[in-house]
Design a protein around this nucleic acid. Structure first.
Lengths: 337, 337
DNA sequence: CTGTTAGCGCTTTCAT
DNA sequence: ATGAAAGCGCTAACAG
């Protein structure tokens, strides 16, 4: 159990060389000219002993720990955005880095602890991730490692990765047009404050902006705009039920998939079929979207790609914010003409 | 940016003491008898400089890195079991540890890399987590730190944390009885091979065993057993549709919430209401369960609790496998009498 | 071409 | 009651 680990000195000894030589050979430094024979001996020794470098020791010496920290409010553990962490994990692995995951619940005290815990371990970089894209609280501590904001922004750290919501908003309208639908569209999930960027998320405001811009460009107007504060299935259900009493929309544009889910329930209750009677299109590409019958056509939040990009920016060089394209996920709730 | 970090030596110098004294005071060693004054000076110096210990250096010296590794197949990033990671994260934080998360996709090569990456960083313990509880592949490497299996088992490492599926199986039947339902129950998601423990998961086999035992104890028999290999909404829908053609069940017992989701769709289509016409009960407590109308009563997989327990076992002392209770989550698809 | 030496920042005997 | 010195495992100057 407590068999001592093999050290570089052991390898050097077995190879009959100095630790310096062993170190140089094992780390593959280019400028050094040790004999081919020496290389062979060291590698053989390392292999036979099962040598593994002690990263802590190396970090102490080189100031490079080959690890990064992923600090998030809730995102790490939310179905909704676990894609962020998965993408980040994959990119980190490719770069032979390891990722610490820290959750803060959005509480300042835990934020501080998390940053300190990460910095104390000499991480090579920090990712601040947010469940809802917005200005992220970053504790006012000295941070002397590269930092990127993921699905959020910070005045202090300009490098951020965000979904291209404006373009996504345009796309959903364009997609409606492609389906031959240019009127009778109900907007589900409107909220004036959010649209003004006051709450929830700046990026959602951009989603609205994109939608408005495309509507205007196509000279379209909504048949109705149904407002609610939260975007849960229950709200989608109630609002859709209500609107169906007074009018018969041709399509429902939902601000997220959970609202769409509720809309489906109300539509089914009213014996209206999707997409023949009423088409539905939405945002997020929640797992839900594939469970629905028919599958929900939705503008996906590219979480995995975002997570990956964040790590690449962190480990490479970058200074500009990055907008990641939101793909149209075709499923069947909105056919093409 | 590259302002050098404050070291213990800086603190000692400012306090006018040796690093030894500073170290002892800051780590709060009990047996030492430095003057109260010395304590005050060191703490003041540390605070004014914003001193933070270098964990890598400390780890090198003490062989304790205050970090653990969470190695999983997919679980870290799956909505289904992100609770595992969240619980583990919370417990690690409480114990002032940090958690490395590694994903292997179930590929042996990546498993090996992950274990090596973790061990190279001197982690204090390893958690192997599986998305589906079963015998987990653990690479055949020397592992000299405490290890616990989470939602899985390994012959090599006896400490494991699993849901108490047998008891959960019994509970669902007992709950049906409480609702006054003792016949007309359809089992949705039967699979002979799985039940025999041959595929998918050993724990699911125990779920079946618990169900069977409780049925027998109550002298009940299923009206029908609908088999399928995968447990996706589509299967639940199709099978329910089919069974409704020939019979009218009083209740549907689903092996997971996704099947139940499909069953709801078929029931709605047949204009049968839940729970008045047909009651539904299920397993997992997927997020889905709360979206349904009415909410789905389900036997929850206690992921968060499991993750938490795994870390506690890892950091404390433990040698026995742990069975975590599966709670009945009441929602409305199965009223009490 | 290869080895010696000196730390990285910290804890820990062991003296004083 | 306090400090000097050694050393964890590794890398990087600098000599040979």
């Amino acid at each position: 159990m407590t068999k001592k680990r093999v050290t570089l000195a052991d390898v050097a000894r077995l190879a009959g060389l100095s630790t310096t030589a062993a170190s140089m050979i094992l780390t593959g430094r280019p400028d050094t000219r040790l004999s081919v024979e020496a290389h062979a001996k060291v590698h053989a020794a390392a292999a036979s002993l099962g040598y593994r470098p002690n990263v802590a020791a190396r970090a102490l010496r080189t100031d490079k720990s080959r690890s990064i920290a992923f600090i998030s409010d809730y995102v790490a553990t939310t179905r909704f955005a676990s894609g962020l962490i998965r993408g980040a994990l994959a990119a980190a692995e490719e770069a032979k880095h390891v990722m610490l995951v820290l959750e803060t619940g959005g509480e300042p005290a835990r934020e501080i602890q998390a940053v300190e815990a990460a910095l104390d371990r000499q991480v090579d970089g920090l990712i601040f991730a947010a469940m809802r894209a917005r200005e992220v609280f970053v504790p006012d501590l000295p941070i002397n490692v590269p930092t990127v904001m993921l699905n959020g922004t910070s005045a202090r750290f300009p490098v951020s990765v965000l979904p291209d919501e404006y373009r996504g908003g345009q796309r959903v309208v364009e997609r409606l047009l492609e389906a031959g639908i240019s009127d009778g569209v109900v907007l589900l999930g409107h909220n004036a404050e959010v649209e003004a960027g006051l709450f929830r998320s700046e990026t959602i405001a951009r989603r609205f902006a994109g939608i408005r811009a495309a509507m205007k460009a196509a000279d379209m107007a909504f048949l109705a705009e149904l407002s609610c504060w939260n975007w849960e299935p229950g709200h989608g259900y109630e609002l859709t039920r209500k609107v169906l009493k007074s009018t018969r929309p041709r399509a429902i544009l939902c601000l997220n998939d959970r609202l769409a889910f509720g809309a489906y329930q109300a539509l089914a209750e009213a014996r209206l079929s999707v997409p023949e009677d009423v088409a539905v299109v939405s945002f997020d590409n929640d797992e839900l979207a594939s469970y629905l019958r028919p599958g929900l056509t939705t503008i996906g939040l590219p979480h995995e790609e975002m997570g990956r990009r964040a790590v690449e920016l962190l480990l490479g060089e970058a200074s500009a914010p990055q907008l990641i394209e939101m793909p149209v996920i075709e499923r069947g709730s909105l056919p093409r003409v």
